[in-house]
Design a protein around this nucleic acid. Structure first.
Length: 887
DNA sequence: CCGGTCACG
DNA sequence: ACGTACGTGACCGGA
């Protein structure tokens, strides 16, 4: 009878699991200091596979050691690989132990790699008529794919895999699995460190094998190949190619001492596995098995005692400790509008809960929330401040914000759900809102008091209990000043800005909207005429069919799903047909209409004619803010037509003005500071036009020579490129020059700015070593892909390593400026209000009489927010609307 | 719910 | 040879 066989590539999965969990490496250690992240990740993968595949037979194969028949053949095989971290190698013995507890056999064989064990067993399985699944993190194993054998390669984390069947393999590589070995013989493998034939990479190898069918076929017909450098290399390096083929070929006849009959999957050995989990301190797995984390803890941790607070027992509040945890529950994400479902307040011993938010207005509660006699721990302080403000209560003296602090520890830990975030911290005695409230249309606050109050109390307890460990992490990262002096004070400032809101004249928007509507209808008709039929212009699919199938315009670029019709593509098609210009115009107006006219009209609060955005303080990977519901950080400005939208943004009081100040070139100034490059610093100190002076340097102009507009434009693009983590290809695309020219620009830039070059090298090196990069204030970003074998992923991580300290430090600086600005406005008793932050710009509204004061004060505060080795420069403007700003 | 597109810094 | 400029959010169409 056909059975299901599961073969797991132990070393490669352990490796993947280790790096997938790498940013949490500190959290995964057991009582004895053993790192356990790889073991944990391995088990996650295993559970996922077992649940989905349900094998009859299973085996985890391991490499026996460094010495194999391949290293005997070729001494440099897998040479040059970084040493496996000891944090990983120390975990491998325990994987065997865990597999035993899971009822799965493990096996390794001297002189052979895990690949060969798997290859051999898969062949045996095929011959026995079994169905086989191979799970690995190494794409090389896909050569084992057959009609009966599927290979699952992990792509992200450990539970997401790409399934290789013969059909998928063919589609992806354009050759059969056997041919792929021949391809590798030609192209080599940089991670296994064998060379292949000089000058042949994946694309050429694929072409040659497709043409000749195989390596043998190629060499049989090599005489007919026309004379070329490539042919010469192929002929000279035939021996190498054949050796490489041998190295690349996974053995299917390894001398195994076990057979298929030894692989029966036994199922979990509950007692043994429980013991193992306890040894590893795997609380989440233990809780799934309904067992307490360790023998001493006998109570069910999920239970929690609470008391319902009512008007009659308010005296309970007086007994609370003066360090409380509080949460006002708002079911809707948008806390400006959400209803209130209830609240919880407590001190770790006592948890008081209620559905009745009017109790918050009573003196004893209000006192706790407002007074400096009580410090408060919360989750998302800004939401709490705004929510309570709507109830007429001022929340002060927040000590700990779990959301904010977790975000600083790792900005990718930014779930807005307390339960999920707690789980990420390995704390499981609280559920996620989705688990308790449901999702989609079914989402609702439970009517059962027991269910709802338990959830509230558990949330509060999670905040309380996670405070100490999260503080420890902040301290370990040297992030206490970032947390206490920047992010937490900023939360209050942002709350104030959101509450203030910005006045928007709906009438202005409506008038613009009706004009746009008319124009849209006109252009639409013209486009239908030109296309010869009516279609949905907003559909890229339909538009592509019209342009490229019907009208036969040249295809410039394709996307995964069809033809690309992006602006860059359409601009290249200008001149082929007048329809292109009309489509571009249609797109521009349609965008204004839907996003900015209709979109903004929808979010004006009827009560005050204002828009109240929410700034997300715990979202971006770099430390910038983002703005939602609506996004006020991308209101059009570059094109005049869109810029008109800003006419609708007006001061909220008669006789007031809109005032705005922005940092000039803050990212390049930060770059000059961080890199310490003397030339770049000097140019800023001398107050030069930085793009012009960059042009002077990289184009080697003499003192009398003039910088042409083109030179300046190119230099500006290079400066942008440097900030983004430059690549010649990217630069060439942005300024429409050849890749070679772009490369020369970059080379020239690095010669002129050697400090920048040094920085780029060092930050990438440091990111490789540490796995993260930091900003000026120790804001941290982990870069998991920095160790990736995949060139594209790794390159992306390397560019991120260059960009994040720049973009993130600029974000740090303006955040400090905002906190100081808020203080200064109060100190000077000004009526002016800070309304918006747009990354390098602050927008205010103020009485006309205060404008002269602001013109002095705001640049002063912004300039001095952070002492850099170069000056910061700030420019201010003001006017009657956001559109009319003038110097 | 995802991908394409386009608005901003 | 590989395939990209960095960071966001909103809207639309089409599975």
């Amino acid at each position: 009878m056909a059975e299901k066989l599961l073969l797991i590539d132990g070393n490669s999965i352990a490796f993947r699991a280790f790096f997938a969990m790498h940013n949490q490496i500190d959290k995964f250690t057991n009582q004895n200091g053993l790192h356990t992240a790889a073991i944990y990740g391995f088990k996650l993968m295993l559970d996922h596979v077992l649940a989905n595949y349900q094998p009859d037979k299973a085996l985890v194969a391991f490499d026996a050691g460094k010495q194999t028949f391949r290293t005997e053949m070729y001494a440099d095989y897998k040479g040059g690989r970084a040493k496996t971290p000891t944090e990983l190698t120390e975990q491998l013995p325990y994987l065997h132990e865990m597999m035993h507890a899971c009822g799965i056999k493990t096996y390794q064989l001297a002189n052979y790699e895990a690949d060969d064990i798997i290859g051999t067993l898969a062949r045996l399985g095929d011959q026995a008529g079994d169905e086989t699944l191979i799970v690995t993190g190494d794409r090389d194993l896909t050569q084992l794919v057959t009609d009966k054998t599927t290979v699952a390669v992990t792509i992200k984390g450990v539970t997401q895999t790409e399934m290789y069947t013969p059909a998928h393999f063919q589609e992806k590589f354009g050759v059969t699995p056997t041919q792929f070995i021949d391809m590798k013989a030609l192209m080599g493998d940089s991670s296994d460190n064998y060379p292949g034939v000089t000058g042949i990479g994946e694309k050429t190898a694929q072409k040659l094998i497709q043409e000749y069918g195989s390596l043998d076929g190629l060499y049989e017909n090599i005489d007919q190949m026309r004379k070329s450098k490539r042919k010469e290399n192929l002929v000279n390096e035939e021996k190498i190619a054949r050796e490489c083929k041998d190295l690349a070929t996974i053995r299917r006849d390894a001398p195994l001492t076990i057979g298929l009959d030894d692989l029966k999957y036994q199922g979990e050995q509950t007692e043994e596995l429980t013991k193992f989990y306890q040894e590893m301190n795997f609380k989440s797995f233990l809780s799934k098995m309904n067992v307490a984390p360790s023998a001493e803890e006998t109570t069910d941790a999920k239970e929690i005692a609470y008391t319902e607070l009512t008007a009659d027992n308010l005296d309970l509040l007086a007994d609370l400790d003066h360090h409380v945890t509080f949460q006002l529950e708002m079911p809707n994400e948008n806390y400006h509008l959400s209803t209130f479902a209830g609240f919880v307040i407590g001190d770790g011993q006592t948890w008081l809960v209620s559905r009745d938010e009017s109790l918050l207005q009573t003196a004893p509660v209000k006192k706790i929330l407002t007074s400096d006699q009580y410090t408060k721990d919360v989750f998302n302080a800004k939401a709490q401040i705004v929510g309570l403000h709507r109830l007429g209560i001022e929340l002060n003296y927040v000590a700990f914000d779990l959301l904010l602090a977790s975000y600083l520890v790792d900005p990718s830990d930014n779930s807005n759900d307390l339960g999920e975030l707690a789980h990420a911290h390995d704390y499981y005695d609280v559920k996620s809102d989705e688990e308790v409230y449901g999702k989609g249309v079914k989402r609702a606050i439970p009517t059962d008091d027991q269910v709802f109050f338990t959830h509230l109390a558990q949330k509060a307890r999670a905040i309380h209990e996670l405070r100490a460990p999260v503080y420890d992490q902040l301290k370990e990262h040297e992030q206490m000043p970032l947390y206490e002096d920047i992010e937490l004070p900023l939360t209050y400032v942002l709350a104030k800005m959101e509450i203030a809101g910005i006045k928007v004249n709906a009438q202005t928007l409506k008038e613009m909207g009706s004009k746009l509507k008319e124009r849209l209808a006109e252009i639409e008709q013209v486009i239908y005429q030109e296309a010869g039929e009516e279609f949905n212009i907003n559909s890229t699919k339909q538009l592509g069919e019209i342009l490229f199938d019907k009208m036969k315009l040249p295809v410039i670029k394709k996307t995964r799903t069809g033809y690309s019709t992006a602006v860059a593509v359409l601009e290249k098609l200008q001149g082929y047909s007048p329809i292109i210009g009309h489509i571009l115009e249609y797109r521009q107006i349609a965008k204004l209409q839907s996003t900015y006219i209709e979109g903004l009209l929808k979010v004006i609060h009827s009560s005050d004619q204002k828009i109240h955005t929410r700034y997300l303080q715990t979202l971006t990977a770099t430390g910038r803010l983002s703005s939602v519901d609506p996004n006020l950080q991308n209101i059009p400005v570059r094109l005049e037509e869109g810029r008109q939208i800003r006419r609708a943004f007006v001061p909220s009081e008669p006789g007031w003005k809109i005032f705005s100040s922005d940092y000039s070139q803050i990212e390049l100034r930060v770059l000059a500071h961080i890199t310490g490059d003397k030339n770049l610093q000097q140019d800023f100190i001398d107050g030069k036009d930085i793009h012009e002076s960059t042009a002077r340097r990289i184009f080697h102009l003499l003192p009398g020579e003039e910088v042409t507009p083109d030179m300046r434009r190119h230099a500006k693009a290079v400066n942008f490129g440097i900030v983004y983590g430059i690549s010649d290809y990217g630069l060439s695309q942005s300024i429409h020059v050849t890749r070679k020219q772009a490369h020369e620009f970059i080379e020239s830039y690095f010669e002129e700015f050697p400090g920048v070059k040094k920085y780029v090298t060092e930050i990438v090196k440091s990111a490789h070593e540490k796995g993260y990069v930091e900003t000026l204030t120790h804001r941290r970003r982990y870069l998991d892909d920095i160790h990736s074998k995949n060139f594209a992923k790794r390159s992306f991580a390397e560019r991120t390593a260059m960009n994040t300290p720049i973009q993130g430090s600029a974000a740090d600086i303006i955040k400090i400026a905002m906190i100081n600005m808020d203080k200064v406005l109060r100190a000077h008793d000004l009526k002016a209000r800070m309304l918006l932050q747009i990354h390098d710009e602050l927008v205010f509204e103020a009485p006309a009489a205060e404008i002269p004061t602001l013109e002095k004060l705001v640049p002063q505060v912004m300039d001095s927010a952070f002492k850099l080795d170069v000056p910061l420069k700030v420019e201010s403007k003001y006017g009657d609307t956001w559109y009319d700003l003038k110097k």
